[in-house]
Design a protein around this nucleic acid. Sequence first.
DNA 1: TTCTGGCACTCGTGCGTTCAGAGTGCCAGG
DNA 2: CCTGGCACTCTGAACGCACGAGTGCCAGAA
Lengths: 344, 344
Amino acid sequence: MAGEVRQLDDRKLAVLRAIVQDYVGTEEPVGSKALVERHNLGVSPATVRNDMAALEEEGYIHQPHTSAGRIPTDKGYRLFVDKLAEIKPMSAPERRAIRHFLDGAVDLDDVVARTVRLLAQLTRQVAVVQYPSLTRSTVRHVELVALAPAKVMLVLITNTGRVEQRMVDCPGPVGETVLADLRTALNSRAAGRRLPEVPGLLEELPAMFEQADRPTVSTVLATLFETLAEQNEERIMLAGTANLTRFGHDFPLTIQPVLEALEEQVILLRLLGETNDAAMTVRIGRENAYEGLISTSVVSVGYGSGDESVAKLGVIGPTRMDYPGTMGAVRAVARYVGQILAES
Amino acid sequence: MAGEVRQLDDRKLAVLRAIVQDYVGTEEPVGSKALVERHNLGVSPATVRNDMAALEEEGYIHQPHTSAGRIPTDKGYRLFVDKLAEIKPMSAPERRAIRHFLDGAVDLDDVVARTVRLLAQLTRQVAVVQYPSLTRSTVRHVELVALAPAKVMLVLITNTGRVEQRMVDCPGPVGETVLADLRTALNSRAAGRRLPEVPGLLEELPAMFEQADRPTVSTVLATLFETLAEQNEERIMLAGTANLTRFGHDFPLTIQPVLEALEEQVILLRLLGETNDAAMTVRIGRENAYEGLISTSVVSVGYGSGDESVAKLGVIGPTRMDYPGTMGAVRAVARYVGQILAES
DNA sequence: TTCTGGCACTCGTGCGTTCAGAGTGCCAGG
DNA sequence: CCTGGCACTCTGAACGCACGAGTGCCAGAA
């Protein structure tokens, strides 16, 4: 590892940085002459050519054909992101705009919807926002509503404002007092607790009721546990697919597989799932496990109402994207969503 | 009107039908020779050419350049749909598959999600399904949950299984008995009623409470009315955008504006809103009000749990689509969703 | 009257050729 | 270790050309 990097002196890194920047801007392979013109590297094209040859040798850049300019490889982008680029902070007016746009949200659905649209607009790419996960959030309230003699609706409200409801078909008629007792018992034990711990806290609950009511209690509890456990309820919202057409058109990146991937919630969830909670994660090209996304990069980060993240959001774009800007936008949006969630 | 049609004898109509069918299949302008080969029209290419000239004169078909085959115009498709095509019924195995696929749904979200995916898969086009509208459905239950001394959560459950929730910040602390009274009063008056009638039924409700509690009651009611009235809460689910790439590629239809239109819920809602409730509606090309969709056709129909429709669903594809098949699929899916909703 | 076969005409498409420009690698000299 | 120069390579655009598909029209047959 050190061996590789040792060979890249500062000027070669500067050349790589310049190549990435130019290529992202122009979308065309960049040659030695154009490079020295646009960036004042203080050396001649010939020198740059030698550096380029070295960079290509190491696999950071690549030329489509002889006598064409160079384009960065996935490895080149990786180095750029890790060592050469700094996250570009949003400007003050941009931050104000984000804040203002998100502040208007009325409920959780709206927060997520606004966030995803905002992110798509800021980055001009495809944005993905995961709903705050049930697993990490806590119970705010459990409500039981009798709809019919033997039919109860169970409503679970979490601290993130998410509401899940389930119909419960009880084995027999349910008395209103039993329901009230159960409601009280549930809330006193579960409120404020994290969802995964709840089942453990309710184990001996049936034993507290009369023999006749136990089947009902058990049925309700079973449905509640099911709801708590349902990982696949993790939902996702998407926006900005129209931005795909901005590239794709004249590029090896055909949008078909990308669109297909975007329709599969499972794939998106897995994609976001790979995000390292704490820091921002950038997956470049073939680093993405999914075949259809090998020409794209995914920039994602966790967000949350407190200091810990309850869900993730991110952006999907071509590997040739403006990483500093995109990362800046993603980070800023994640922060503000976290604040909004904490307030509500 | 009669004047125009009078000039089109049976054979000319047959030629138009054949042109539409061939063009939909091959995506290439169809010439006179190919036509007589594939369909046994019993006449020579020269005759067909004369008929084609007449059809072109009337504006039903059009040739991209001299010495190219003909393609149908919007007007041609319109005639085809109105007079020449019959809705193609689904085969028994297809119907079974639809039934089976939809039967597995667990809640309303799931029903809609499955429906839209199914429709996209069956037609291989973009499918759109509107959530059952709040306006036409009835109240099944209203629940009030005290979250904090002066904070109440309002949950509205409709007969279509839809659940809407809102936080209510009350002017002062709310007693549990007041809440219970209000809950009872609300449900006894509103349950089973259509959403738009509800506000009228609750007008004198505040007068029934003690002076001190009236501000609270009014606040809750205001939020409830807001929720009932919120037309913009009409949600929509989309699937099959990847199918756009199947055409678009080599066609005057660029997918960009279509993708943009699909991201605008407002546009989709307006599109579906134009659907004639009772019958199936087909909007062809420029018949669509929206600029971005002038190269597409929209096939839509209402669906509902009873005999009246509570929402709409449809398919968006290129004007050169298989109308009989698409209409068959749309009709079949709408029927089965209606059944599922009625059962639950 | 209506259909048919024939014929001249029009274009779009595909293919091979040419040409200019951009970019490279390498080498010898500062 | 950098630089200027030079020969080489390759792509992409432009051009010309021939081919084929398809048409419109006309005169003759049914």
